Amino acid sequence: MRTLSRIALVLVIIGAINWGLIGLFQFDLVAALFGGQDSALSRVIYSLVGLSGLLCIPLLFARIGESKTDTPRQNIGQPSYATEFGQENDMTDINNRARQSDQTDDQL
């Protein structure tokens, strides 16, 4: 699914560039490369770009930084109240060891 999403995004970008060229310079790059707007190959490209746009609609509603990959990633935009080294250490164990060593030193 991840590969399909990337292919769809590339096709949407190609469509956006083509529409930008049409709007700014009245030049249809897809038609120029594939034999005019009425050629079968141009129509296939236009159709793929349109379907890719439909596949990218969920990106509009996805939370920023949300990833559907299985690899763990840092949550972008969500505050973390931990220290920069991760989980804070429990100091009670260290204090108990220090007291025990003091007691053994006193006994000697």
Rank of each mutant, 00 (worst) to 15 (best):
M1S: 15
R2C: 01
R2Q: 11
R2S: 10
R2P: 02
L4M: 07
L4I: 08
L4N: 04
S5T: 03
A8Q: 04
V10I: 06
V10N: 02
V12R: 00
I14A: 05
I17Y: 06
I17V: 15
N18G: 06
N18A: 00
W19V: 00
G20L: 10
L21M: 15
I22L: 09
G23E: 03
G23R: 06
F25R: 00
Q26K: 13
Q26I: 05
L29R: 04
L29C: 04
L29T: 00
L29M: 14
V30D: 05
V30R: 04
A31W: 07
A31R: 02
A32Q: 12
L33Y: 08
F34D: 00
G35S: 11
G36N: 09
Q37K: 14
Q37G: 09
L41S: 04
S42C: 02
R43A: 13
R43V: 03
R43M: 14
R43I: 08
V44S: 06
V44K: 07
V44R: 04
V44M: 12
V44G: 01
Y46G: 06
S47L: 14
L48V: 07
V49S: 03
V49Q: 02
S52R: 00
G53I: 02
G53P: 04
L55A: 15
L55C: 14
L55W: 09
L55Y: 09
I57W: 05
I57Q: 05
P58C: 14
P58Q: 10
P58E: 10
P58S: 14
L59S: 11
L60P: 05
A62E: 05
R63F: 08
R63W: 08
I64E: 11
I64Y: 07
G65P: 04
G65M: 03
G65S: 06
G65A: 07
S67R: 14
T69N: 09
T69Y: 04
T69H: 09
D70C: 05
D70W: 08
T71H: 12
T71N: 08
T71Q: 13
R73Y: 12
I76M: 10
I76W: 10
I76T: 02
G77Y: 01
G77N: 01
Q78T: 14
P79H: 10
P79M: 07
P79Q: 10
P79Y: 09
S80C: 11
S80T: 12
Y81T: 10
Y81A: 05
Y81N: 12
T83Y: 00
E84N: 08
E84I: 12
G86I: 04
G86M: 05
G86P: 05
Q87D: 11
E88R: 13
E88K: 10
N89F: 11
N89L: 13
M91N: 12
M91C: 03
M91S: 11
M91H: 09
D93H: 12
I94E: 12
N95W: 02
R97V: 11
R97C: 07
R97K: 13
A98V: 11
A98L: 13
R99N: 13
R99E: 14
R99S: 11
Q100F: 12
S101P: 00
S101G: 05
D102T: 11
T104K: 13
T104N: 13
D105A: 15
D106W: 09
Q107Y: 14
L108K: 06
